[in-house]
Amino acid sequence: MVITTTKALTRIDGGAEPRSTRRMDQGAAADGELMRRAAAGDDDAMRVLVERHVARAAGLAYRMLGNPTSAEDVAQEAFLRLWKQAGRWRPEARVGTWLYTVVHNLCLDELRRPMRHVGELDPELADSRETPYAARQRSEVAALVETELQALPERQRAALALVHYEQVAAAEAAAIMAISIEALESLLARGRRTLRARLAGLRPDLMGEVE
């Protein structure tokens, strides 16, 4: 698997700034300091980094893989690679962008494996995931939306996961996926049009043409 270098990840155009990206920008300097402390073995700094970024990393992996246990395996691997980078971390690099890129690439690798072994996971972890009770709590709408999201082609799903769910700026999402903004917009539009058609039964107001 090819992981984009930290140097490349810092050349991202900051033209678009959705809400979460602004939060990430505000935390970027703090992340650099945390990475410096993490490289020196500061456990507290590592805990803060995990708390700050683990949900985003696991969330993107879940959207791409559709399986919470596989998603957590990917998120764990991404963080292990982050720790390995700590000693060489450049302060201006964004931890969030770096993690998203690694997670995205790991997920593509996982999706392209000839045989995906979704079930061969730590049984303790598997038990901690969605229980029958929790599964019953999921609404029918959520289940249908999730099913249709997972039915999308992987690149459309990744684009939607980054821009809609993770609220990553367009330029940053395009850089993470190593595509142009125009290609990103095309993936997003195709994905959303497909979802709109497939979910029209839930919301009739999804369909219709403008005068």
């Binding site: 683990v54 949900a55 696991a58 969330g59 879940y62 959207r63 919470p68 998603a71 957590e72 998120a75 303790e124 972890l125 901690s128 995931r129 969605e130 609404s139 709408v141 959520a142 289940a143 939306v145 999730e146 999201l149 939607l160 809609h164 769910y165 979802l195 979910l199 839930l202 919301r203 999804l206």
Partner: peptide, 13 residues
């Protein structure tokens, strides 16, 4: 509609 299907929170494990 999309917002009604959030990703599960990561586990403590």
């Amino acid at each position: 509609l999309l917002d009604q299907a959030p990703a599960p929170l990561p586990s403590g494990i």
